[in-house]
Each structure stands twice: as structure tokens, then as C-alpha cells.
């Protein structure tokens, strides 16, 4: 008996998701792009870069690539490469924090709605519907215009806009999971509601949530770029990819590189997150 148990057990084990990631080329490309930006962001203070806010008036006359400024300078004579690297650092700090906070709020809402149902569900779901009925950009503009542009307020805006979507996913999963017998078994151990929600239900939502997390990182990167472009991002002189594009638009016909380089940066990071999400979906469907 024990021999057959061992054989059977060994034969059917599926390794954890992160171990299987190399099986998906798409996921690996996405991961490589994301890691490229992460490494640059972490290493930014160590790299021999000019200060992102240092003005080089002499470079203004010839703002294209040069030995001193590899990617050229922006309309104020600041080094583009340095601003892109430091700007990436901002995005990679703000986006994950915003998404994590949104997840905390969204999962809590979804768990409460799906678990308690009744009026709790009605209140949470209707409130979510109201928020989701706004076009996202309009919502951001209204929020930031009212509370003022800052890193903290970007996080607040992202949480308000994303949490209802996350709550909806979690609620749906919890609704079906609560009928499972392992939840009844937990009640028969006198587990508390909080324990059932966090330990029995939430871990079983992780499959769809991991994919959604990567996608949402991409969306949030777009959001931060959009807000910067609309002048609602980080207040100047902080390097901010969206803000850099905005500053360069007035002279885009003369000096297109000033807008193109930060746009490439933005696009590549978003693509990285999306490819990673695609790859993870592919791997979880192959199970």
C-alpha cells in the first residue's frame, strides 16, 4: 500500500508556478523586460549618471545624443537617460505599492461581499458598480484635481479605481468556494469567520489573482504615465515618464527624441507586465 501511495504521489505532483515559469517563452520575455527596469531602478544611485534634475544649458544648443548625454537632453537641458532611469524608479515604486494597497482593499471588499452576502454584498457591489461606471481617466482627473498631485494621491486614485474590479473577481470566486465541503469542515472545527475567509478561501483565489496582479501593474503604469502627461502626476521637478512626454510635445516636430525615449520606456514596461500575465495564464491553463 505505502509503496503504491508513494509512486502515485510522485507521479502526479505539479511543481509550483514560479518553477514552471521557464516553460513559457512568453512569460520569460515579459519577466526579462520587467527585470531589466527593476535592475536599472535599483541601481540608479550607483550608476555614473548625471543628476536627473541638473540643468545643462550648454547642451540645449545641441540636445541630441552625445558622449556626455547618451540619449540627449530634455527642453530644460536635463539628461534624458538619467531622467528615464530615475523615472523608472518612480514608476516601479508607485505602481507596485498602489496595486498592493488596491489588492488589500479589493480582496477585503470581495471576501466580505462573497462571504456574508445579503446587505453587505448589496452595499459593496452597488458602491463598486458606481465607481466602475465612470470612465477610468475621468475618475482619475476628478480625484487628482481635487486632492492634488502627489505620489500618495496617485496611490489613492489607483486604489479607488482598481479595488472594485478586484473585489468583483474575489467575490465571484468566494461565492462558489463557500459551497465547497472544506469550508463546512472548517466550521466543524469552530473556526472564526476571519479565519475561514483568510486561510480557507483567499488562498484558493490566487490563480486568477496572480494573472490579474500582473495585468494591473501594467494598467497602473499606464495610469501613472497618463496622469503625468495630463500634468496630474508627480509635481516637478521629479522625473516622471508621462510628464517628460508632456514637456516634449511642444517641440515634438523639432526634437522628437525627447518624447520618443520616455514613450519607449513606458511601452516596454507595460508590454513586460502584459507578456508576464499572458505567460502565467498559459501555464495555469496547461494544468
Amino acid at each position: 500500500m505505502s509503496a503504491s501511495v508513494a509512486a502515485e504521489t510522485a507521479g502526479r505532483a505539479t511543481p509550483a508556478l514560479w518553477r514552471r515559469l521557464p516553460n513559457s517563452p512568453v512569460a520569460m520575455v515579459g519577466l526579462a523586460i520587467v527585470l531589466f527596469w527593476v535592475v536599472l531602478a535599483i541601481a540608479a544611485p550607483l550608476l555614473p549618471l548625471a543628476s536627473p534634475n541638473a540643468l545643462d544649458y550648454m547642451a540645449m544648443r545641441q540636445p541630441f545624443s552625445s558622449a556626455k548625454h547618451w540619449l540627449g537632453v530634455d527642453p530644460l537641458g536635463r539628461d534624458l537617460l538619467s531622467r528615464i532611469v530615475w523615472g523608472g524608479r518612480t514608476v516601479l515604486e508607485v505602481a507596485p505599492i498602489a496595486v498592493l494597497v488596491a489588492y488589500t482593499v479589493g480582496c477585503t471588499m470581495g471576501l466580505l461581499a462573497g462571504y456574508y452576502r445579503g446587505w453587505v454584498d448589496a452595499a459593496i457591489s452597488r458602491a463598486s458598480d458606481v465607481i466602475l461606471s465612470f470612465p477610468v481617466v475621468v475618475l482619475y482627473v476628478i480625484l487628482i484635481a481635487n486632492i492634488g498631485p502627489s505620489a500618495v494621491n496617485i496611490v489613492v486614485a489607483v486604489v479607488v479605481a482598481s479595488a472594485p474590479g478586484i473585489a468583483r473577481i474575489v467575490r465571484g470566486l468566494v461565492l462558489s468556494l463557500t459551497h465547497q465541503e472544506f469550508v463546512a469542515a472548517a466550521y466543524l472545527r469552530r473556526e472564526s469567520d476571519v479565519f475561514v475567509m483568510l486561510v480557507e478561501l483567499l488562498p484558493n483565489c490566487r490563480g486568477p489573482l496572480i494573472t490579474d496582479f500582473c495585468l494591473r501593474l501594467g494598467y497602473t503604469t499606464i495610469t501613472i504615465g497618463t496622469l503625468g502627461f495630463l500634468g496630474l502626476g508627480l509635481p516637478p521637478p521629479n522625473p516622471d515618464w508621462g510628464g517628460m512626454v508632456k514637456q516634449a510635445t511642444s517641440m515634438i516636430t523639432v526634437f522628437p527624441h525627447m518624447a520618443l525615449y520616455p514613450t519607449f520606456a513606458l511601452v516596454s514596461l507595460i508590454l513586460g507586465f502584459n507578456l508576464l500575465a499572458d505567460g502565467i495564464t498559459e501555464l495555469s491553463q496547461a494544468d
Partner: peptide, 27 residues
Amino acid sequence: VRKRSATKVAAVQMVFQNPDGTLNPSH
């Protein structure tokens, strides 16, 4: 169960029908 004492809950237990739902897949 919430209103029953711990000893009473331990004293009355249950085995369910569906083997696939009876264990939490995450644990």
C-alpha cells in the same frame, strides 16, 4: 456549530460526499 460548546462540536463530526471538495486544495 457557532452556538455549540467546543466539546459538543468535537463530539458530532461529519464526513462529506464529494472527495474533491472535502480537502482545501491550498493546504
